[in-house]
């Protein structure tokens, strides 16, 4: 597998720094559940950036990574739901737990089509929430317009997830080398969109 370029390293480092900033300073003053959810989301992003930086893109081939990466959209969507629709918090938390257990169980016990299907369903639902809710909230005036950026980040995370999923299933939309080449840029753009989106909100 090709070595990371200097630009890739800088972009991954930036991703880590942005995610670290969000964990340290970007979520203070919010309800406990929201803080926990966003800490998990940005924490996984930070660790992902660091691990790719340290180990290289090979880490993406690990089945553990596919499981842990699910935590990003799940916890991010949980944070948004818990912050803006607290009445749905418990129900959605239950869905998040069930979704994660489903991904974990199918990946470890029933690898194959069922694992891919459960991953797609879980990523799909949470991804749509991260993409759609910020647009709904900001366009209806419930949050400042800057919160739209979180939706943009949601779109980017969906795009990244889609590219990686198709790569895993053996039907890549782009070539493997192309996907891995754009991934660091996609990661930093996505994290920046989230961090600035939350900041502006």
């Amino acid at each position: 597998m090709a070595k990371l370029s200097m630009l890739d390293r800088i972009l991954l480092l930036l991703t880590g720094l942005l995610a670290a900033y969000q964990v340290v300073a970007g979520i203070d003053g919010k309800p406990t559940m929201v803080i926990v959810a966003y800490t998990v989301a940005f924490g996984v992003l930070l660790i992902a950036g660091l691990l790719i930086l340290i180990i290289g893109m090979e880490i993406l081939d690990s089945s553990f990574v596919a499981i842990v990466a699910t935590l990003i959209p799940l916890s991010l969507s949980l944070g948004i739901v818990a912050e803006h629709f607290p009445e749905w918090q418990t129900t959605y938390l239950l869905l998040v737990v069930v979704g994660f257990v489903l991904v974990l169980a199918t990946r470890l016990l029933l690898p194959g089509n069922l694992a891919t299907l459960s991953l797609m369903v879980v990523h799909g639902i949470s991804g749509l929430l991260i993409f759609g809710l910020p647009f709904y909230l900001s366009l209806t005036g419930r949050t400042p317009l800057g919160f739209l950026l979180v939706g943009v980040g949601g779109g980017l995370i969906g795009l990244g997830g889609l590219l990686l999923s198709f790569l895993k299933t053996g039907h890549p939309i782009l070539s493997r080398s192309m996907i891995l080449a754009v991934l660091p840029g996609l990661l930093v753009l996505m994290t920046a969109a989230f961090v600035f989106g939350f900041y502006l909100a």
Binding site: V23, T39, L46, I47, L51, F64
Partner: peptide, 24 residues
């Protein structure tokens, strides 16, 4: 608390790698 949260995240990263190193 922000720094404590970040420290926890970094610690979890180390547990994760140590765990992967143990299992695979």
């Amino acid at each position: 608390w922000g720094y404590l949260r970040l420290l926890s995240v970094l610690s979890v990263g180390m547990f994760f790698l140590a765990g992967v190193s143990l299992i695979k």
